[in-house]
Design a binder for these strands. Sequence first.
DNA 1: CGGAACCTTGAGAGTAATCAACCCCCGTGG
DNA 2: CCACGGGGGTTGATTACTCTCAAGGTTCCG
Lengths: 251, 251
Amino acid sequence: MTHTFEASTASKVGRAVPHGKRPFEADLARRVLNRHMRRCAAGTMLVLEGEECRVAYIVRSGWLAISKTLEDGERQIVDFILPGDLVDIADEHRNACPVQVEALTLADIAVLPLREWKQLQTDDPAIADLNRKYSVAILGRFAHSMLRLGKGSAETRIAFALMELCVRLTAMGEVRNGRFHLPITQQHLGDFTGLSAVHVCRTLRRLARQAVLTCEDHTDIIIHDMDALAQLAGIDADQLEREVVPDAIGT
Amino acid sequence: MTHTFEASTASKVGRAVPHGKRPFEADLARRVLNRHMRRCAAGTMLVLEGEECRVAYIVRSGWLAISKTLEDGERQIVDFILPGDLVDIADEHRNACPVQVEALTLADIAVLPLREWKQLQTDDPAIADLNRKYSVAILGRFAHSMLRLGKGSAETRIAFALMELCVRLTAMGEVRNGRFHLPITQQHLGDFTGLSAVHVCRTLRRLARQAVLTCEDHTDIIIHDMDALAQLAGIDADQLEREVVPDAIGT
DNA sequence: CGGAACCTTGAGAGTAATCAACCCCCGTGG
DNA sequence: CCACGGGGGTTGATTACTCTCAAGGTTCCG
């Protein structure tokens, strides 16, 4: 039973609310969360499209994906969920969830029944506030993604996806010298950017040839020239952080 | 002063909550809304990207677009706002809105300061509930749009866009025999589907040649074969309604 | 050692963008 | 009344980007 909500995660999550308030670190929240921890293998489906969903997820470790599938099987990843993130897509008023949620890596997740999750927000206004920030951040990410999907070239989309992940991981303290771990395949990146895995590969190689970034061990990304990447993505890194990272909202 | 929130609109909006509850028809709501009515010419920018936004909009008549622009000027329409819809993108915690809101046609809009909007929700739980439904609907529309933008062909995207609008307009009673008014240019449709205006035109003509639909007067669409359109869009019309129309959520 | 999953690269095909010309409709002003 | 201009829409020709198919490479693991 190693996967409880103790120090390491609590401090990481706590960073989401910098100025002294750390909702998920509060005794109450930690106790509730620990009661619902669950470990999921990579590939586990947490919510299937069209099935009902009456729980909220708070991720302690591992990456999740929220995705949606076309009738012919083509899949679009709508959002990546990183450690410390909150997934609140449940809707008590309907019995069919419009999206799918799956674990991309081994993941430790608190699975909160909707009632307890609401209670937690009622009991601790800071948690309600955090929830609002996550909603705002996800809307920001959606708008950005739609813009790139609709009007961006392959280079723009890849550059943007990497910048978004880099900015979010930076806020979690997971980036050192422009280097971060990317525990997903090129296929996943393609499902997120609307490109084929083959073209993701080509685009990454082209960026590497331009000395913008390097891929290492197929699992790490090192960004050498953030300005060039921002130029390709068509966004300023600071602005992106404000619009996409819950930690940066309202501070 | 013709643009007050009286019978015609109130009943249309009221349809959003079928079972006897009609929040925007209640005396209180109507009085507050009428105090803030504003008429906007086509092309009016209500919110600029990057500027602060401290108001909510409730549309009485006319179409709006929520859009986002790339540095090179390419624009993506993220969502269309129809009569009776609610736009609540304001965030009291930051001073830069991530998207732009503009009137596509002449429009009558209630512009509610955030404080009054919140008060209204506090005073009338039915309005708070309505707000939640609109949030859920917009998320559903975003997920669908992202899927089509990422993985759909031009035909799929156009078919989906028309189906979404048809379904939403049907819920408002604005569709008769598959025919509805589309007060936007092909350029707008292109900005929404991520296609060039030229290719929107070609695709519409192809659909017309296949007898799926007809365009009339450049402003009306008549859908002859909804099943074929649904097939192309990759979605069932009933399912789409449940996921995209606030009226249909939680009923 | 064999297999599986993923990455890489090349060649060819297909889709949508761009450029360009023309049309139509409509409002304006001579 | 008509000439004019502007905004959309339509169509064709050409270009460019991305997909698909295919083959081979690497790493990891049973």
